[in-house]
Amino acid sequence: MSEPHTPPPDDHDLDEFLARRSGLSRAYREASGDTRTPPALDQAVLDYAERERQQAAAPGAMVWYRARTPLALAASLILVVGAVLLARETSTFPAAGVAPAPQAVLQKSAQEEKAVADQPAAAASAIQNQAPEPMKPVPPAAMVVPTPAPPPPSVASPAPAQAAASGSIARDALEQRKAASAAAPPTTAPLPPPPELEEPALAASTQVPPPVAAKAAAAPVAGKPEPTVIPVSATAAQLELCANTAPDSPIDAGGFPSAESWYAAIRAEVTRDADGARAQARCLRRVYPQTAPPDDIGKLVQ
């Protein structure tokens, strides 16, 4: 405070003023006593007070006023959760690591089997062009079979259903191989014979293909890719060995194509070179004397 040109009054004057007995107080009250609030101002304030009182007295008004913040938060939370769920449902990219439903796997397996049965050419070419892939794991629920099949006694002699399934596919592939090899020269490179092909293939030749569900059930039990038969014929040296060996002397089958592959090669060659096919068939008969050849191969030997 910056005051002090005049000395402050003594406390007696101040006490008189505070007691509202001083002449200055009386003069102020006389001069200001008539100054009152304008009526319009009074009405405005009283109306506002009455409106506020009525709003506060309205039923539920205070409850709604106090609950508006939690309600707003809850509504926002519901909207966010709903939006997230909707986005996940409509997303075109499934989340990584999410396995398909068992029912979907079963349907997919059945569709694949049906496609193989309906379009053997496509299946055979796919088998020929691609290396065998391991079977995808199927949930236990997908492995539902109409009738329980007995467990396979061993790998060498699979269950009838398994053999029928693998044999059916092998036969289909074999038929496709015949059609495909008509345009392509036969492969002469010797390959190691797949031993598990013979018995299923022979069994399949006399059995009706099992239903799709049975094949779908048998495939995971085998745990192996379906066997394929690649036509392989004997080389010229092997044919010469057969021709120069005495008829009574046995010929070691090592190095020769497997019987099944050899059959396929002979069938493919018979339309192009009947003499060559007969030579191949005779050599096959020498190499595998204990195995009865199919009728078409046997006719060539005779």
Binding site: M1, E3, P4, T6, P7, P8, P9, D13, L14, F17, L18, S22, L24, A27
Partner: peptide
């Protein structure tokens, strides 16, 4: 407050 009142009273008395 007392000081402010003292100075105010002095100025008002002077004006009157």
């Amino acid at each position: 407050v007392k000081s402010r009142l003292r100075y105010a009273l002095v100025k008002l008395r002077e004006a009157l």
